[in-house]
């Protein structure tokens, strides 16, 4: 008789202790898969940051000047700032839906380490926000007359950098999830922490344009990402516990 049948008829089966089970990989993959499916069913939420990115970049040639030389000089910074803001735009909803429908409580009550499970959620955020932004940036670079030879570096630096941004931003999203209008507060909390990533990300593209070595910048971006990967999950988990307490 299977466990399900047993609980239907009852009576003959006793309920014993459940030993703590491993299954972290199973839980991690299930959370990753569930969030991917959820996001892919809400396409507009995935598209919003990308459309925002495209529109903001289009505004600059219109607002400043269509002069290719001027645009090329400021293109690395513009692309990076716009991508950073676009990534920020979608952060607010990272834990919001889970908080509202009660899945966040359930996530907090699993025996598996919460920090690693939140990592699955952050990974989905990066896969559907940071990575598409990085892939889209070279296209928008053409519009800003970004000099040839820096396109690959732009995509690479954004891919590395937005992963850090997702991790750092998730701390802010976790802290503000209990607040009804946490969006603005989230930006104020998180944007100052984005500065190092912005400096080295935009710096890498600038260096590529000038023909300098890019490895130092990319290495620092990588170092920032490793640091964020090690520390942010614990901060996210602690922040979620604080938010659910309030």
């Amino acid at each position: 008789m299977s466990a399900t049948d047993g609980s239907l008829s009852g009576g003959d089966m006793s309920v014993g202790h459940v030993e703590p089970q491993g299954g972290l990989t199973v839980a991690f993959c299930a959370t990753l898969k569930r969030d991917l499916v959820l996001m892919l069913r809400r396409r507009s939420e995935v598209m919003n940051p990308l459309v925002f990115f495209a529109i903001v970049i289009t505004l600059f040639p219109i607002g400043i000047s269509p002069d290719p030389q001027l645009l090329a000089a400021i293109a690395p910074g513009l692309l990076w700032v716009a991508a950073l803001l676009a990534a920020l735009l979608s952060l607010d909803s990272l834990f919001r839906a889970d908080y509202d429908d009660g899945s966040l409580e359930q996530l907090l009550l699993t025996p598996q380490p919460l920090a690693l499970l939140t990592l699955a959620k952050v990974a989905v955020h990066w896969l559907l926000t940071g990575l598409p932004l990085a892939l889209m940036a070279p296209l928008l670079g053409i519009m800003l007359a970004l000099p040839a030879g820096s396109y690959l570096v732009l995509a690479l630096s954004l891919a590395l950098g937005t992963a850090s941004l997702s991790l750092i931003g998730a701390i802010g999203a976790a802290l503000t999830v209990g607040l009804s209008r946490g969006g603005v507060l989230l930006s104020l909390l998180v944007l100052p922490l984005y500065i190092p990533v912005l400096i080295f990300g935009a710096g890498a593209v600038q260096a590529a344009i000038l023909g300098d070595g890019i490895m130092a910048h990319l290495a620092i971006l990588g170092a920032l990402l490793s640091l964020a990967l090690c520390l942010a999950p614990w901060a996210i988990a602690a922040s979620l516990r604080i938010s659910i307490n309030g």
Binding site: V18, E19, Q21, R41, D101, G102, E105, Q106, L109, T110
Partner: peptide
């Protein structure tokens, strides 16, 4: 936690799934 099944006010059911 391995022995607990908690169900709160919100059912914890994803509307899109």
């Amino acid at each position: 936690l391995s022995n607990l099944l908690y169900m709160g006010h919100a059912p914890g059911v994803k509307a899109a799934l």
